[in-house]
Simulated assay, not measured.
Amino acid sequence: MTRARRSTGLGLELPPAALAAMHSQLATLADDVVATIVDEVPSYRDAFSGPMGETISSAVQLALGGFLDLANRGRTDDLSAAPAVAGSYQLGRGEARSGRTTDALLSAYRIGARVAWRELSTTAVSHGLGAEVLADFAELVFAYIDEQSAAAVAGHSDELATTGRVRQRMLERVAHHLLSGSPVDQVVAAAERASWEPPLTLTAVIVPEPQARRVLTALSPATLPVADPPDLDEGVLLLVPDAHDHRRAALLRILADRGALAGPARPWLEARASYDRALRARAAGAELDTEAHLVPLVLDADAAARADLRAQALAPLADLRPGTAERLADTLRAWLLLQGRRDEVAAALFVHPQTVRYRMGQLRELYGDRLDDPEQVLALVVALG
């Protein structure tokens, strides 16, 4: 049996043949690590695709090579001095800039350790390393990964502390320009300064403050939280990117049962229009989806104009007793909306069909030919809607 020489601390000297075999499998092992991370951590699926996946694979290969050199160097009391630690620190900073938390990053390191240990230990056993040396090897693998993880977390924290808050202020500035009607060149310049890639659309979402953090974590990292939005007395405003077409259903599922309200998706430079719609819908008592409340929003867009239209449309009833006028107005509304289907009108009003016939006779006497004029019918439908 080939024996490795144990050393004190976490170091050990691997047999040359075993070390050579491990080095030869690094490229394949790095690809396996990246593939497993992509499979098990969905948030990295897009980030590691294409050329980025090749770059990450090369970085993993270099880190594993550095580990093998470290493992064969004898005593290694200070793993934090490994060159790969600096790379992990910078990786953590990059994750913070991307808007991701450390949860996914730490999962990736755990997966990398698992896959690397499985493959490297298999090679080690095939070259005759005994259980005692293999145990030291395992200890070094996981100590090395711990150092990498700690460096990544430190980088993430430092990035948030030094630039994260600055970028957040820049993002808030983008939102301010969008909602205040600033010139397009100012909005675009603010987005560039914040390193924020403009989406196709933005959707204004108003969320109760206690629900805001939970909702925000379920949305795209590119979502813009808006500080002190105009005209919003309570709640939190979020501008959600690219939640249009089929993606809107996913947004509404996130918001369901949270007291939230989503405006329509609008081209990103027209985000104020989405916010204004959400504000109007909220004032009207709408819930969740403003698109499900378009008719009342249209009817109430100009309350004074609608009141004038109603008075004008119901002028033929003005000289009747209030109770009679109200019953005839209700009958006329049902008649128009149900397209003159007398039995259905009677059912809707809880009266006999003959009563409907009698009331419509009265209305025809009062309105005359106006009930056959399409423009008058449209005015009556809107007025009574």
Rank of each mutant, 00 (worst) to 15 (best):
L10Q: 04
D39S: 15
N72S: 15
V85R: 12
D78T: 09
R5G: 06
T102C: 13
G65L: 13
Q90S: 05
L64C: 01
M22C: 14
D69H: 11
R73Y: 02
P15G: 14
F67W: 00
G11I: 04
Q25V: 02
D32L: 13
Q61V: 00
A59F: 01
G9C: 07
G53A: 04
D69M: 08
Y89G: 03
Y89W: 06
A17R: 15
R93L: 05
A30D: 04
A47R: 09
S58G: 14
E54M: 14
A84V: 01
G65A: 14
P51G: 04
A59C: 00
D77H: 03
V34N: 01
L91D: 07
A104D: 15
S80H: 12
A35P: 13
A59D: 01
A35W: 07
V60R: 00
E95R: 14
G65Q: 08
A82Y: 01
L68Q: 01
A86D: 14
S98R: 14
V85N: 10
S80R: 15
T28P: 02
S49P: 03
A47L: 09
Y44G: 03
G11D: 08
N72M: 11
A86N: 09
D32C: 07
S107E: 14
A4N: 06
G92I: 01
T102R: 11
L14K: 09
A21G: 06
A47Y: 09
G50K: 08
L106H: 10
D78N: 10
A4M: 06
L62M: 07
A81V: 15
Q25P: 00
Q61E: 02
F67T: 00
A86Q: 14
A81W: 08
L105N: 02
T8L: 13
Y44V: 05
L105H: 07
